[in-house]
Measured scan of single mutants.
Amino acid sequence: GPGLTDLFKTEKAAVKKMAKAIMADPSKADDVYQKWADKGYTLTQLSDFLKSKTRGKYDRVYNGYMTYR
């Protein structure tokens, strides 16, 4: 089956995709945050998933999740 690194890459891609969806349409934020909360994502995990070469690119999404939880 898929190894943990593959799983991480898949999760990371999914999280980034959802983060971009929030940035494009902030009204989606609560739905996405709820999904992440259901998956039990911690802020540390989210921070790892949303690492970007562009500093602060996903800060709004991260901060939103922090206040959501």
Rank of each mutant, 00 (worst) to 15 (best):
E11D: 05
T54V: 13
K17V: 07
D30G: 08
A14P: 02
T10K: 14
T42I: 03
Y58G: 01
Y62F: 15
Y58L: 03
T67P: 03
S27N: 08
Y41H: 02
Y65D: 00
P26H: 07
D6W: 04
T67E: 14
K9G: 07
M23F: 05
K12N: 04
Q34T: 06
A13Q: 12
K53S: 14
R69N: 07
V15S: 01
T44A: 14
K35F: 12
K57C: 04
D6G: 07
S52H: 07
S27Q: 09
Y62I: 15
L4P: 10
M66I: 12
A13E: 10
R55M: 11
Y58R: 03
Y65N: 00
D6A: 11
K51M: 09
K12W: 04
Y41P: 00
D25N: 07
M23P: 00
V15I: 07
Y68S: 03
Q34M: 12
A21G: 05
D59I: 10
K53D: 15
K28G: 06
K51G: 11
R69G: 04
A24P: 00
A29T: 05
K20F: 05
V15Q: 00
T54N: 11
F49D: 01
D38P: 00
D31R: 08
K17L: 12
M66V: 14
D38V: 09
A13L: 11
P26D: 05
T44I: 12
L7D: 14
A19D: 00
G3Y: 08
M66N: 07
R55C: 13
K12G: 07
Q45R: 07
Q45K: 08
V32M: 05
P26L: 06
D6Y: 05
K17E: 09
K53G: 14
P2W: 04
V32N: 03
D31F: 13
Y65T: 00
R69H: 09
R55T: 14
G64W: 03
K53A: 12
L46V: 07
A24H: 08
T67M: 13
G56R: 06
N63I: 14
M66Y: 06
R55A: 12
K17T: 07
K39E: 08
A14D: 08
A13T: 07
M23S: 03
Y33L: 02
K12L: 05
M18G: 06
F8S: 07
D25K: 04
V15P: 00
K51I: 10
G3S: 14
Y62V: 15
